[in-house]
Amino acid sequence: MKTGNEQRDTLAAPAGRRDWLAGGWALFWENPIGKIGLILMACFALMAAASFVPPLLDPMYHPMHGVDPEISHATGPSAAHWLGTDFIGRDILSQLLAGARIAFMVGLSAAFMSIFFGTLIGMISGYAGRFVDTLLMRIADMVMVMPTLLVVLILSSLFGQLRIWTIVLLIALFRWPGVSRVIRAQTLTLKHRPFIEAARVTGASHLRIIFRHIFPNVLPLALLYMTFRVTSAIIIEAALAFLGFGDPGTVSWGMMLQWVWKTGHMFQAPYWLLPPGICISLLTLSFYMLGRAMEEVLDPRLRKEGESE
């Protein structure tokens, strides 16, 4: 859809947008919640990146298949295993790092997909109105009232173990309606703004109006919702894995918790139970804080645009 010229503008990095971003960033950084959230998230991103290192050092540090030949049961922290090992002698630290990678992957991709569907459906629904709107929003209502976790549990008991990407897709498919409701509401208010009417008068097609005029205006809101969706996706995946419906071929934090529980180490091995539990809480918290801070950045700006700008 982009023409050569339009691409050139984006390349020329207009000073205006940079100012705008810089102003938003300053507001964000001033907010302690945003600062803490971002730092926390950066720590987890580092963990995810570091997850590739231990298996390279020694095959026994492979989170899934690596077993310390000298250890055959759960042991506490030691020089060789900083966080200890699990019941068959696998290194908990490398499992924890691998879990961070999975959590990011699941969280971001499920959130991205649900935002993608939600935004698209919300914009179409709000812009088209009438019949299309009613139809899409009824579907959204139906999906919205389905308990995601329960449906995924039923599906996995029907089809056996689910692959991690199937889980991601299912989460995305069940989590778009909330986003589309919000985006639809925003689109409805935008639809009658004079700049949309001005585009109609110039002869812009419906597609052009939706993607060129409405989309950038709902994008900040969509990104905001994405941070909240990341949180819920991580929690759903962890819950599934803990209940034993996770992808058996991956090491996620929920999976680690399931192993602790299944092997009866709940109260015997705090060094094994606590790290994944704390990580799940902190990572979801960091995205949540990020979202809250973003909300505060967007909010005064949205208000300002309404009245004086």
Partner: peptide, 21 residues
Amino acid sequence: YQSLNPYLSVYQTVCEPVVIH
């Protein structure tokens, strides 16, 4: 204050009719 899309630059705004037609 209402008739220009806040996310489009002056060039993009004025160029749009040219592109459309």
